[in-house]
């Protein structure tokens, strides 16, 4: 199996040279194989989200390389990158413009890539249905639907351009557990249907959830990778003290 995503020696420093300097990432490296699901766990400030935001270019790395599908990310234009990598955010409702219909939000990338209005509508409705929403939700506004439904729409939006990499940044953390279970089932369905065409990077502080859902796991602490490998292996027989402490803290 090939690596669809390789992160090599990423460093990220915020407020460089100032008193408030934070080394958010220190030599972070990990890789995601095609068709795999990689969990990233760690406490707040561990650098999980920063890694994701560097991959999606919402934050600039100070140093290091991201390789996507065998090509250095620096050689890929924004337009192309966002057809390959997509992200689902922690806050479902806030990730949609309150003044724009859900359907238009989901179809935004299609419209930006020159798909006609009528075809976009058709494809968006299909995506909504695939993500477990009735197609009438096209015309709803974000505040009219529940958080779980909004997150389904956000997943539909992320899938619109058939990305190869889907990053879920604490995508279920703000949801109730029963809703979380439904979203995980939806993601499992998406993985089953697309096989090695989709790889997921699943960022979460919920270790039990990561163990259930992911094949591999990366444990991060204070901007560094503590440990990485097979999810069950690491969570059941960790060799690192930090990981052991983290797992022992789960109630």
């Amino acid at each position: 199996m090939d690596n669809i995503l390789e992160v090599k020696n990423l460093n990220c420093i915020f407020n460089k040279g100032r008193k408030t300097q934070v080394n958010a990432l220190k030599d972070v490296s990990f890789e995601l194989k095609a068709g795999e699901c990689l969990g990233i766990i760690g406490e707040s400030g561990s650098g999980k989200s920063t890694s994701a935001r560097i991959i999606t270019r919402l934050v600039k790395a100070s140093d290091g390389e991201v390789v996507i599908d065998g090509r250095s990310s620096s050689d890929i234009s924004n337009k192309e990158l966002y057809k390959i990598v997509q992200m689902v955010f922690q806050t479902p409702v806030e990730s949609f413009n309150p003044r724009v219909k859900l359907g238009d939000g989901v179809g935004e990338s299609l419209r930006n890539n020159g798909v006609s209005k009528s075809e976009t509508k058709e494809r968006v409705e299909k995506l909504l249905v695939e993500c477990g929403l009735p197609k009438e939700y096209y015309d709803k506004y974000p505040h009219e639907v529940s958080g779980g439904e909004c997150q389904r729409a956000a997943i539909a939006r992320a899938l619109a351009n058939e990305p190869k990499i889907l990053i879920c940044d604490e995508a279920t953390s703000s949801l109730d557990v029963t809703v979380q279970k439904e979203i995980i089932a939806l993601l499992n369905g998406i993985r089953e249907k697309r096989g090695s065409d989709i790889s997921i990077m699943f960022i979460s502080h919920d270790i039990a959830l990561v163990q259930q859902f992911c094949d591999k796991v990366v444990v991060m602490n204070k901007g560094q990778v503590v440990e990485k490998g097979d999810a069950n292996e690491i969570i059941m027989n960790s060799k690192e003290d930090y990981t052991k402490k983290l797992i022992a803290s789960v109630l």
Partner: peptide, 26 residues
């Protein structure tokens, strides 16, 4: 800094559309 502006960036929305569709109305 809001999630929907970032999500829209990830949808490949350009600066002009971003301003007129997402920023200005809000």
């Amino acid at each position: 800094e809001t999630a929907f502006i970032e999500a829209s960036k990830l949808s490949g929305t350009g600066v002009f559309k971003m301003v007129f569709k997402h920023i200005l109305p809000n």
